[in-house]
């Protein structure tokens, strides 16, 4: 990785910016809490923005030593949870399938 910028990105965070990120994150936010959340989001980004001042070596493509994984298990079918174990924890199901709101128009 090249020479780091001398300053953090210094992003101007406003409520509209937070709304856009929330849309990406699939989070509905309460409008009355947006000012406080915007201020907190700005402070968190100021904190983590310090990462741009860290001198790091060029990308070497290596994994972290601790993240090198062991042997993968054989790629063979094995026991799984039963369908009823999965559906009984769902908020809506018809016994065999999860029930979701209609998301395609009538194509007939």
């Amino acid at each position: 990785m090249g020479t780091p910028p001398s300053t953090p990105p210094g992003l101007p965070i406003d409520a509209d910016f937070v709304r856009r990120v929330a849309t990406l994150a699939r989070l509905k936010l309460e409008e009355e809490r947006l000012p406080e959340l915007t201020e907190q989001f700005q402070r968190i980004l100021d904190l983590v923005g310090a990462v741009v001042r860290i001198e790091v070596p060029a990308e070497d493509g290596s994994l972290l030593p601790a993240l090198e994984i062991g042997d993968l298990r054989p790629d063979e079918p094995g026991p799984t949870l039963a369908r009823r174990d999965l559906t009984r924890n769902a908020p809506a199901h018809d016994g065999a399938f999860l029930v979701v709101p209609k998301f395609r128009g009538d194509e007939s």
Binding site: M1, P4, V48, G49, V51, V52, I54, V56, P57, E59, D60, S62, L64
Partner: peptide, 11 residues
């Protein structure tokens, strides 16, 4: 942010 943090993590 993320890629830089991961490079720093390796370091």
């Amino acid at each position: 942010y993320y890629k830089r943090a991961m490079a720093a993590r390796r370091a």
